[in-house]
Design a protein around this nucleic acid. Structure first.
Lengths: 247, 247
DNA sequence: TAACAGAGTTTCATGTAGTGAAACTAGCTT
DNA sequence: AAGCTAGTTTCACTACATGAAACTCTGTTA
């Protein structure tokens, strides 16, 4: 299948280089080249360009490459005042205080979900959720919410994608999504990572479009299936209230 | 002067497109093309590539382009635990509480300074400082600190750059920097923006290298020249304490 | 309802400019 | 001194980015 490309290869590669730094630590040139399968000299030129524009910088001590301050400049403008991740924060904290578990907010971005906001449980044993993390759409309570309540056609597109796990029975999964629509919320128990469980409900804006999934997650010994269903009404109610906050 | 280029043009252009979004709001394709002087079709291809990698996204309602969530993913990893902007925050808040003015932290990035952290004054009339902002190195108290205490050679390079304002007498400016080194701090009074004033002191790490400039800023009627010099010892002391926190 | 305008998208011939092999440098280890 | 690793620079080749122009939409004007 000859997919028509209307993108710029050099830029794609440069962005791949940049995304290497999503994992946090610093990289040497050769490490990066090996990781994305490009020649040293190519990566060198790309890094020089990224450095020139301030997107990467070299650590003074280690000589390795790390993220530059232009990223900070951009991210400062990412959270505008009308951004859900900002305006919903107080409500998320209320829910956290009520249930004493970590509360996260997810949106769908193509075939993945992204955690755009999180408030941590204050308990000693807790799930630690990092903002900005990208996770698969095939597992986890909020994945199922993001697919179940998505606009028509989204399910099909996402599940048809090459990235979708082949072993997953699409028909059974679709049935499960229909059940979630009926129930109004989804749960997951040790689905994505062992020892963790979550409940999730959709947030709709005033025009009835789902904009995010609100999720409560914690250790599976505390968030038992029973306990999760008990929590569900509170989460749905919070999600509803959040929806009314949005424009 | 034939500057040897070892950068990739297509990538440079793509990053310029991305940096358009540093100013916050959304842009149409043609707007961007006009702004950076590129052809519509070129910008279209670059935006398609950026969109594909999640660096920009299109607003569902307005159809315009805005920053994508990959930026969030990157910025989440910017503030690591050893990051000055994180570990110094408590000290900055203490200083803010003591002086009741906005406290900022600046680092030098090539020919500019970047505000990497800020805590706002709680007073009704206050300077509002946005994190990530890039400002010129030629004006402002912290600019002068960042140049005065920089490693040997930096002054010359920065002031020789094309971006340096031509009208500024380099010799007089250099003299001023020497005075600042002697005093240990710098002030500015309505220098960059009318009605604003600031005091700034350098933060040195354990090996004696300056890593940032700590700055206290506010309205010029409250931060009079006299008042600023009164504040200086407290700021220098805070900067010194911050230095010991760093590795 | 046709004509126009303005924004976004696609096509395609052209030659610039990005590519990767290889050579080179510099710093460490054996 | 030889070997190794990581980063940097050079250069011939042609793949690929480029921009003019054509085209599609959608909304506006006459």
């Amino acid at each position: 299948m000859e997919e028509e490309k209307r993108t710029v290869r050099a830029v794609e590669r440069a962005l791949d280089v940049l995304l290497c730094f999503a994992s946090g630590h610093e990289w040497g040139l050769t490490e990066i080249a090996g990781r994305i399968g490009l020649h040293k000299s190519t990566v060198h030129r790309l890094l020089a360009t990224l450095e020139d524009k301030g997107f990467v910088a070299r650590d003074a001590a280690t000589e390795k490459y790390k993220l530059g301050l232009s990223v900070l400049e951009l991210s400062a403008n990412l959270s505008r005042s009308d951004d859900p991740s900002v305006v919903l924060l107080p409500e998320m904290e209320r829910l956290r205080d009520r249930l004493s578990e970590t509360v996260s907010l997810y949106v769908r971005d193509r075939n993945e979900r992204v955690r755009i906001q999180a408030v941590q449980s204050t308990q000693a044993i807790r799930r630690v959720a990092t903002v900005g993390a990208r996770l698969p759409l095939s597992v986890g309570a909020s994945s199922k919410v993001l697919l179940a309540f998505a606009e028509a056609g989204v399910r099909g597109v996402v599940m048809a994608d090459a990235a979708w796990p082949a072993h997953l029975d699409r028909e059974a999964f679709g049935k499960q999504l229909d059940d979630i629509v009926a129930a109004g919320y989804a749960t997951s128990f040790e689905e994505r990572e062992p020892g963790a469980a979550a409940v999730s409900a959709p947030i709709f804006n005033r025009s009835g479009k789902m904009v995010a999934a609100l999720s409560v997650s914690g250790p599976s010994n505390r968030l038992t299936p029973d306990r999760m269903h008990e929590h569900a009404p509170a989460i749905i109610e919070a999600a509803h209230r959040m929806g009314t906050i949005l424009g």
